[in-house]
Design a protein around this nucleic acid. Structure first.
Lengths: 333, 333
DNA sequence: CACGCCATGGCAAGCGATTGCCAAAAGTTG
DNA sequence: CAACTTTTGGCAATCGCTTGCCATGGCGTG
């Protein structure tokens, strides 16, 4: 495995006949060294196959060129877009990307942060389960960027679901539905609140009755109970907290012989993998999740350069759009 | 963000009235220090909220307590399980988990490794795109563990697809099929070769005709061309390189009005998310991908302790099993 | 020609741990 | 009680790199 000795800055220095500091500067701070010297040093470094040690650099400079992303649950395909976007952006900037799961627990989240604190330049918290106050407190000590969560004073990148929810309601209204049921996700989930507020507000202004059921676990299995609960209400349209739940609902409805969209329309959020090939194909609110991941990395990078002064709380809001497929249709007469 | 000064081992030492080395030993090497002293030091450390700096530790000791996992393509849900398994195992062992994508390129893979080499204790290469020789060469310098790839002399964790392929063929044979078509994946894909060998071997011994088409991109979109190609052959059973491809095939067949499984049976590999709710639900070879990820981390850990001597090439083989759903049925008369 | 400035490179002090070696203290043994 | 072993804690070097500060020499200017 490890070769006994990696070549260091000193090896290069000796071989090039200069001091180690000169090598360091040739590499990091080109203008501090004569062009010819620099050229020479670089050539020698190349020849010796020199690779800087990120650890030593980080230890000395305090910059790790690493970010960590914390995700509540890797089982949920919803996060894969965000992860992908963040990873891409980070690696494009030559930044190492650490991924970690918090198992849906705020405590765990805090521990992970504490654990990684010294090894990274900042954290991307996707759908954080912590309280606003908890986050603000953490932000005093650490560089944070939020995804799909807004907290006053903290930088965040969120896919809009307020306006998106309005699109859903309008879509349903235009199909003649007069009422809808929202199947809510976990209470700590910030988007869940946003979505409900969006739905309720739009429903009110369009003269539609909106009711909320739940919370349900935002997974396919959660759909069973959810579907049954919906049927009791006699609603003609149901909006699920996310696609997983929606797919679970579709399944249960099929089992119970309820036809979608003839008897009831179903809408989800996220447009995850599979939403287009479940049956019927799911109408869902799609958002640029990968953009959100990307933006979050950028927010982190902005704050990193901003010396040790106050951090920005720039908030990036990304537009969503409704993808209409086969799970929504005219309200039954 | 960063508080100006983190508390260090020296702060603790001063406060506790001992030398820094004693603090270090109290923390890492309990038996080297008097129980009472240790107790005292720990108490002070706790009070001061001391957190060790992983960077400094790593720099000095050479152990980073970090592993990196390289995956060709995050878009592919196939890897979700492996990633999850590896992440879980790593974090259970208190090891930081770095995730990186190689964009399906061997060069990129090598670069990433080179880049991260000094920051990690080892690499998990999932479905590596590199050649056997390339991997062996890399293994001289780095601590590697392979997932779903076998190379003589290197540690690996693979989900069996040889025996699994036999299960598929037997299943099809028992349904009366006399021939099958295999839609192959990318040529650099090691499992693709395994699967084909498994299918062909079993087919031969069961008196079934097996032919191979492709390669096709192992994604849903690849299924279009693949399905068309299959129809030309008039085969009654098709085995796709993976579920994504299989799902693409199902779609295309539906478009062309070919009914599954009445006219043709379809089988996939991986049992990814969605395989159970596409229509018809997909018969597929399921394997414990997360186990594979888990095992890979363990292999890495084993080799890490093994000082600098020769690495093990322990190979973990995980059993797969056939999940029979609705996409396979009796051969048409 | 003398003086001062700037570009350039070297010295050395960290960054925060770990660890080999040594010395003092404590415990053992005859 | 002397001689010896073991336990325990401290000193200082080290990991590989960055960076503030200083010394030098070349060059421009009056």
């Amino acid at each position: 495995m490890n070769s006994p000795k990696r070549t260091t800055i000193y090896d290069v220095a000796q071989e090039a006949g200069v001091a180690a500091s000169t090598v360091s500067r040739a590499l990091r701070n080109p203008r501090r060294v004569n062009a010819a010297t620099r050229e020479h040093v670089l050539r020698v470094a190349e020849r010796l196959g020199y690779r800087p040690s990120p650890l030593a650099t980080a230890l000395q400079s305090g910059r790790t060129a690493t970010v960590a992303m914390l995700v509540p649950d890797i089982t949920n395909p919803h996060f894969f877009g965000t992860i992908r976007g963040a990873e891409r952006r980070a690696s494009a900037a030559g930044i190492t990307f650490i991924l970690s799961y918090t198992e849906e627990s705020a405590d765990n989240e805090r521990n992970q942060i504490e654990h990684l604190a010294r090894s990274v330049d900042g954290f991307i918290l996707a759908s954080s389960r912590m309280s606003d106050d908890g986050l603000l407190e953490l932000a005093e000590e650490h560089n944070l960027a939020l995804v799909n969560r807004e907290v006053r004073g903290l930088p965040s990148a969120v896919v809009d679901s307020r306006v998106g929810s309005r699109q859903i309601v309008e879509h349903l209204a235009s199909l003649g539905h007069r009422s809808l049921v929202y199947l809510s996700g976990p209470h700590q989930s910030w988007p869940a609140g946003e979505r409900w507020r969006g739905l309720r507000g739009s429903a009110r202004s369009l003269g539609i009755r909106a009711t909320r059921l739940g919370p349900f676990p935002p997974r396919v299995v959660g759909g069973g109970a959810a579907a049954d609960a919906v049927l009791v209400t006699g609603a003609t349209a149901v909006v699920a907290h996310n696609d997983l739940l929606a797919i679970g609902v579709l399944r249960r409805l099929a089992e119970r012989g309820v036809s979608v969209p003839e008897q009831i329309s179903v809408v989800g959020y996220d447009d995850i993998f599979g939403a287009d090939f479940c049956v019927p194909a799911l109408t869902t609110l799609a958002g640029p999740q990968d953009e959100a991941g990307r933006s979050a990395v950028e927010l982190l990078l902005e704050n990193r350069s901003r010396s040790t002064t106050r951090t920005t709380d720039r908030r990036v809001m990304l537009p969503s759009h409704l993808v209409i497929r086969d799970s929504t249709g005219p309200a039954p007469a």
